[in-house]
Nucleic acid binder design. Structure first.
Length: 278
DNA sequence: GGCGCATGCTCAG
DNA sequence: TGAGCCTGCGCCC
């Protein structure tokens, strides 16, 4: 499920299976057929993510830009490619025989799959805020946007021009972890609080890359269990998140019911009692 | 089998 | 602000 960690992991997986190999490219579904024909038989140089965007670099300055959107998937497997099923927008195949095992990858359901030049890629990336997964990210760029905005911080964290790679899960969870009210205007947040949020996002996204899924609750569970010394909070250990999708469930810290509200078309979750910090 | 929903985003109004 | 789009899944009948 695609927040920034998914794309980072995907870029590494594509690198591991295809980098430096001549690949065959096709579009069984047909919607990427012309571009796939241009790529077919050329060398895939590598893959890179920036926020929720994936760029696959082919020789001849051809970049495949992929955005998975809400329900896109790029499934990469070892072995001989099977007959494609369903709507496969882009299929990459490395047939083997080059001293490496065969591999293939199928892209489905993506919001964006398009060919661009390195220059077009640069323009696109320039519109994005810093990505916590990138070593060269400058968090103060994001802070400058936050501190000048009256928009709720819960919305700002999801704004990809402010911060790249954070989605609905990470924004809810990181605000909970730092006890910040998601509805608080950005310009009322303290710089030190935002710096802590950023540093936590760096850790959380890196953890998401390692695990292949988002887990933000574990330390909270341990804290509650230590404090209570009894299994009083129901279903807590089944959770991987503290507030995300936990509407009506007890807050793992104070036990009051997790609240939810649609903000900018997306479901926001938070604890009204714990999250009051500036 | 139909429906609604989902970790996203764009565009019209 | 709401509709639309991409696909898959779980739920309900």
């Amino acid at each position: 499920m695609p927040e920034g960690h998914t794309l980072y992991r995907l870029a590494r997986t594509i690198d591991a299976h295809f980098a430096g190999r001549a690949v065959s490219a096709s579009s069984p579904q047909g919607r990427f057929a012309e571009a796939a024909a241009l790529l077919d038989g050329t060398v895939l140089r590598g893959a890179e993510s920036y926020g929720k965007h994936l760029f696959v670099d082919f020789e001849g300055d051809r970049q495949v830009h992929v955005h998975l959107g809400l329900c896109g998937k790029f499934a990469v497997s070892d072995g001989e490619a099977r007959e494609p099923t369903g709507q496969v927008r882009l299929r990459l195949v490395a047939p083997g025989g080059d001293g490496r095992p065969p591999a293939y990858g199928d892209l489905r359901g993506a919001t964006a799959c398009e060919l661009m030049t390195r220059e077009q890629q640069r323009v696109l990336v320039d519109r994005l805020g810093p990505d916590p997964l990138r070593a060269d990210a400058d968090w103060t760029r994001a802070w400058q946007r936050v501190v000048r905005s009256r928009a709720p911080v819960g919305g700002l964290l999801m704004d990809q021009s402010v911060l790249a790679g954070v989605g609905n899960v990470y924004r809810a969870e990181v605000l909970f972890r730092h006890r910040v009210d998601p509805l608080r205007p950005g310009n009322t947040l303290r710089r030190g609080t935002f710096e802590q949020i950023w540093n936590d996002l760096v850790l959380l996204l890196a953890d998401g890359v390692r695990r292949g899924r988002i887990v933000t609750l574990e330390d909270q569970v341990l804290a509650v269990e230590a404090a209570l010394g009894r299994g009083e909070v129901p279903r807590l250990t089944e959770r991987s998140s503290s507030v995300y999708k936990q509407a009506g469930m007890p807050c793992p810290v104070c036990g009051s019911k997790v609240r939810t509200q649609v903000v900018a078309g997306r479901n926001l979750f938070w604890c009204g009692r714990c999250q009051r910090r500036r």
